[in-house]
């Protein structure tokens, strides 16, 4: 079986500062992986590099997506091939309605795959269906992208976009940060509703709380740009109890 994502000895830096120092990670179709790590460990950098942010220099290593080189693709090509990054801080776009934004995204993907644009009726049907699936109010689509959204609304809108775009690899960058329990539940239920034998997820988080709601198959601990430990549920429970102390970082992992 071809892995969905295969990261091999990935090194990345910003300017002179080396941030990722040899990441190895394989995600097979159907698997949910979590990367836990303290502040500054490189978690968000890894998510952004996978999505194609151009602010980082890849100094060593490879990333294959469905067996093909990923790093040579632009962010839009990656998205159209099925990669989705749920942002830690979704960007507010005054003047562009969520509806307009998503239509452009859906049609860009269809064009990428050589398909016709979706007509207005089918588009609306798709939005309604996905809104019901991830339990968001479709009224949200009339508002400008993320403008004036609460923290919870922003994260829910990210999950909704992931559902509409029918992404194959979902990368959730601290999607739990700043959420109350109800919003956390909506976000987790949305992700869980998308889990199947083909999709993969990478959950990036500081705290283990999210992992009570989206139960991962594998948990990795990222410290100072390296994965220092991998395992199952027991890794998260150990972190919850003792924080990151055993890695020489004195930060709790419990919210």
């Amino acid at each position: 079986m071809t892995p969905l994502l295969q990261i091999d000895n990935l090194h990345a830096s910003v300017g002179e500062v080396s941030i990722l120092k040899g990441i190895n990670l394989t995600i097979n179709p159907g698997e949910v992986h979590a990367i836990m790590g303290p502040n500054g460990s490189g978690k968000s950098t890894l998510s952004q590099i996978l999505a194609g942010k151009e602010d980082y220099a890849i100094t060593q290593g490879t990333v294959a997506y469905n067996g093909k080189d990923l790093l040579g693709l632009g962010p839009d090509e990656r998205a159209n091939e099925g990669i989705f990054l749920a942002f830690q801080y979704p960007v507010e776009i005054p003047g562009v309605s969520a509806m307009q934004f998503l239509k452009a995204a859906v049609n860009a993907k269809r064009k990428h795959h050589g398909e016709e644009e979706l007509d207005a009726g089918s588009m609306l049907k798709l939005f309604r269906e996905k809104a019901a699936q991830v339990k968001i109010n479709p009224e949200m689509l009339k508002r400008n992208v993320n403008e004036g959204f609460s923290g919870g609304e922003k994260k829910r809108f990210e999950i909704f976009q992931m559902a509409v775009l029918d992404s194959v690899l979902g990368i959730l960058d601290e999607s739990d940060s700043g959420l109350d329990i109800d919003a956390l539940k909506v976000v987790s239920d949305g992700v869980n509703s998308m889990r199947n034998g083909k999709r993969g997820f990478l959950l990036v988080t500081h705290y283990q709380r999210l992992l009570e709601h989206i139960v991962p198959d594998f948990i990795h601990v990222l410290v100072k740009g390296r994965i220092v430990e991998s395992g199952g549920r027991e890794v998260a429970l150990e972190l919850e109890k003792n924080g990151y102390a055993k890695y020489g970082i004195y930060q709790p992992a419990k919210h």
């Binding site: 194609g52 962010p75 942002f87 452009a104 976009q161």
Partner: peptide, 10 residues
């Protein structure tokens, strides 16, 4: 980048 991360060309 946000637009591009959703598949919309630059």
């Amino acid at each position: 980048f946000y637009f591009r991360s959703r598949g919309i060309p630059e």
